[in-house]
């Protein structure tokens, strides 16, 4: 079924083996619609690679290459350089990677490719843990989320660290366009992906993608939850264009919905509410989410 206002062409075919309610599969549909036919996709090991290419089948109607888990940005460097040598610089080169490949194991390659300034777009479908292998913690996993390697328990709140601020790290590489997006706001995500692809040099979009399996959420609520992540400020939507911040949503501290609304819907945060409510942790998350949005808005005010 077509998504209203977006190109009808599908380059990521039905029949792939993603779970019901998979946010990443929807993310890939959006990305490929924005990319169009004249594109090459580079994919590290991860959920999407596994569900879309069971040899001899494929869900891809675009040229697609996978090498290993950590090296998609380097493979993309080779692809862009080869295209340059062949005089085919009009071809879009797009990495579509999970957060484990992006935030953790592939980070050195990603940093190297951004520093070198290859003309490619790196899109992270961020489902906030190693979902393909059984929900292990990554650098993108948020504070207090229970995963199989950070299980909640009598002595454990779940993950003890805050999510890595990769978007600003990549902006600091001098990228002309980095942004966050959510599958909850698809037109916004589509436009950002398109802009990232059209901007010369290395660009980055961190695209939040609900994972019902790993987040332990209702498969019919993927969009609703991805919207709430934004509206509570847990995952604010913003862009950094030529070094200047633009905050898309939420626009102010006042319009923030309580984080509790978002946390309550997910099994990975269940221990914050049952058997008894962990007021301290919920307040901590609420405060830090507000501080984060305040900091982003200050950047906008100061023209940074």
């Amino acid at each position: 079924m077509a998504i209203l206002g977006l190109p009808e062409e599908e380059y990521f075919s039905y029949g792939h083996r993603a779970c019901a309610g998979c946010g990443a599969a929807l993310a890939v549909r959006l990305i490929t619609k924005a990319a169009g036919r004249n594109s090459i996709i580079v994919e590290p090991t991860g959920c999407i690679e596994v569900v879309s290419t069971p040899y001899p089948e494929t869900a891809w109607k675009l040229p697609w290459v996978h090498g290993a888990f950590e090296n998609a940005a380097s493979i993309a460097s080779g692809v862009t350089s080869a295209l340059k040598h062949l005089g085919k610089e009009d071809v879009n080169v797009i990495v579509i990677a999970g957060d484990g490949a992006t935030y953790d194991i592939g980070f050195g390659h990603l940093s190297g490719a951004f520093e070198r300034g290859h003309n490619f777009t790196y899109i992270c479908y961020d489902n906030e843990a190693y979902m393909n292998t059984g929900i292990q913690r990554s650098g993108a996993t948020p504070y207090a989320a229970s995963t199989t390697t950070t299980p909640s328990g009598k002595e454990s709140i779940g993950k003890q660290e805050w999510k890595k601020d990769l978007v600003h790290i990549l902006a600091a590489h001098g990228s002309r366009y980095v942004a966050t997006a959510s599958i909850g706001y698809q037109i916004d995500a589509y436009k950002k992906i398109k802009r990232a692809i059209e901007t010369k040099g290395p660009t980055f979009v961190n695209l939040l993608a609900t994972c019902p399996t790993g987040w332990r959420t209702d498969i019919s609520k993927s969009i609703e939850i991805a919207k709430l992540a934004v509206d509570t400020g847990v995952f604010p939507l913003y862009e950094i264009v030529d070094g200047r911040h633009i905050v898309n949503r939420p626009k102010s501290i006042e319009e923030l919905k309580p984080v509790e609304e978002y946390l309550r819907m997910q099994g990975r945060y269940r221990h914050l509410f049952r058997p008894e409510r962990n007021e301290e942790a919920i307040n901590f998350i609420q405060q830090r989410v507000k501080e984060n949005l305040r900091s982003l808005l200050e950047h906008v005010e100061k023209g940074l």
Partner: peptide
């Protein structure tokens, strides 16, 4: 890894 990408692109 870059060699892999370049070779896969046909150079």
């Amino acid at each position: 890894s870059a060699c892999l990408g370049a070779s896969a692109t046909g150079v």
